[in-house]
């Protein structure tokens, strides 16, 4: 089936047709979401009523555009806030983990490495409820003991951040470790020979080398945080991030506002994706 091996035309063309169909299947839902963001109708469905930008900029009911819909704008702000914290924490811990696993040999390293991978195979919902249960029992114990309130440990943004951080860190660790493994330690030794301190050598030689991976991991972390639903659903309090807000709206019947938000999300993701790709490029 490789080019050097002859094949009947029928087989070749039916294979191509299958692959084409597959890519249509892949593109179809995303395409309709984008197209119906411009439909001049209050339902995101056919018939096509004409082109409009009202779902982006509209101010009059029922055509209230995304940019004038307070609940959605606030949710985007919440999501961005959560994503920044998650990305920052995940990248920091991920970098430490990378140094630990690549540079150090110690007893129990293999075991810790497997533990580090575990969040990948724990379903998001379970991660959410286990953190919820644990945080609540800690809060109960502390409140019984001190007579103070520990609202931070009740469902809310802090728990959402911790919940997302708990599995995104694994991805950050893997991305940054892969880059650190390619680093030639003799560069750092050279810096030490030239009189740099240990930390100075790491800061001026190793970290700049890791920079593309660190930024790449950061971008992926922001994206994963923005998109996360399962873990967030269990930990969310009164301020809901974007995916939760959209889910609530979707359950109560959808308007093309949701299409407009989705289109914006796709544009943001594409931009972030390109950014990650650029960082990846600058590695070589």
């Amino acid at each position: 089936m490789i080019p050097t091996i002859p094949q009947t035309n029928v087989l070749k063309w039916s294979y191509r047709a299958y692959v084409t169909l597959f890519f249509i299947y892949l593109a179809l839902p995303l395409t309709v979401v984008c197209v119906f963001a411009f439909n001049d109708s209050v339902f995101p469905s056919l018939p096509w009523e004409g082109f409009t930008m009202a779902w982006f900029f509209g101010t009059e009911a029922p055509f209230i555009g995304v940019f004038n819909e307070r609940s959605i704008m606030r949710a985007i702000g919440t999501s961005a806030f959560v994503a920044m914290w998650v990305a920052g924490l995940a990248v920091f811990v991920g970098t430490c983990n990378a140094f630990l696993f690549v540079r150090h040999d110690f007893r129990g390293k293999g075991f810790l490495y497997i533990l580090m991978l575990l969040p990948l195979i724990i379903p998001g919902v379970i991660l959410g409820i286990s953190i919820l249960v644990f945080a609540s029992s800690v809060a109960n114990t502390l409140e019984d003991a001190t007579d103070l309130w520990f609202d931070g440990l009740r469902p809310g943004l802090l728990l959402v951040i911790l919940g997302q951080f708990s599995f995104i860190t694994t991805f950050a660790t893997l991305v940054i470790s892969a880059r650190l493994q390619k680093f030639d330690p003799s560069l750092e030794e050279a810096a030490l020979n030239l009189g740099a301190s240990k930390w100075g050598a790491v800061r001026q030689v190793t970290l700049p080398f890791l920079f593309p991976a660190i930024m790449g991991a950061g971008v992926v972390a922001v994206l994963m945080s923005f998109e996360n639903f399962n873990t967030t659903l269990m930990l969310v309090g009164s301020d809901s991030p974007l995916t939760i807000t959209m889910f609530d709206k979707l359950k109560h019947g959808s308007t093309p506002v949701l299409n407009a938000v989705s289109l914006l999300l796709m544009i943001i993701s594409a931009a972030l994706g390109l950014l990650a790709l650029l960082f990846q490029r600058s590695k070589e």
Partner: peptide, 15 residues
Amino acid sequence: FWVSELVRTFGWMIL
């Protein structure tokens, strides 16, 4: 992967 699961599911609902 770059598009939220919610958006993908919404697309299927429209379809």
